[in-house]
Computed example of a mutant assay.
Amino acid sequence: MNAVDIDIRKILKLLPHRYPFLMVDRVLELEPQKRIKTLKNVTMNEPYFQGHFPGHPVMPGVMILEALAQSAGLLTFGADMERKENSLYYFVGIDGARFKQVVTPGDQLHMTVSVERYIRGIWKFKAFATVDDKVACEAELMCTVKQAD
């Protein structure tokens, strides 16, 4: 896998997500349409920590899965890392999601996603989120890219 440094400005050009729902801060490594490693800095400023849980903030599992899905979305771009106008990335399925440790403010969430296959417009990925080299979440994700109206 090639070390790269795709920063937030480029990510904003590729993904349609915006605050408070953008879950990828940086791309660290990339082998286009094969494998990607991304980073999410988890801070106390995340709006979900107000209610999940007061006095004991824990990143919701669905937000970790969303970070993995956004990382997978970045992986669907070709080597040119350019987004086709009006294309949107849709999450269409998830299998085998497992949560193995909590993620809290101050953690760096590293996402590693690899392409398992691409058939008839559906991408299937194997995805892991780690904190300090310990698996926090793993799942198989399925996604598609469609043209928006």
Rank of each mutant, 00 (worst) to 15 (best):
V103M: 06
V92N: 11
V62Q: 08
V113I: 14
K84H: 11
Y48C: 15
K37M: 09
W123C: 02
T104H: 07
R18P: 12
I8R: 12
L68P: 07
K10A: 12
M63T: 07
A136W: 01
L74Y: 04
G73T: 02
V115C: 10
Y90D: 05
P60W: 01
D149A: 12
M111G: 15
S71C: 07
K100A: 09
K13S: 14
L14M: 10
I64V: 14
G78Y: 11
Q108W: 00
V103K: 00
K10D: 03
A148C: 14
A148T: 12
K13M: 13
D80Q: 14
G61C: 02
A127L: 10
Y89T: 08
P47V: 13
M81H: 01
G93A: 07
E138G: 14
L75W: 02
D133P: 07
A129K: 02
G93Q: 09
P16K: 04
L65K: 00
T104K: 15
G106H: 03
R83Y: 01
Y118K: 15
L30T: 05
E140G: 03
M23G: 05
S71Y: 05
M1F: 15
A79E: 15
G78P: 04
A127V: 06
D95N: 15
Y89V: 11
D107A: 10
Y90A: 12
E46W: 02
V115T: 12
C143L: 12
I11C: 10
T112S: 07
F77Q: 04
M1I: 09
P32R: 06
V115N: 03
A136S: 13
V27S: 02
C137G: 08
I119V: 13
N45R: 05
N45F: 00
E116F: 09
D5C: 10
L68N: 06
L39W: 03
D149N: 13
D5G: 10
L65S: 14
K84V: 14
Q101L: 11
K10M: 15
R117F: 14
P105R: 03
M63D: 09
H52Y: 06
L75E: 04
L141F: 05
V58R: 09
P105C: 13
C143E: 06
L75C: 06
L30E: 09
S87G: 02
V42T: 00
F21E: 08
V131F: 03
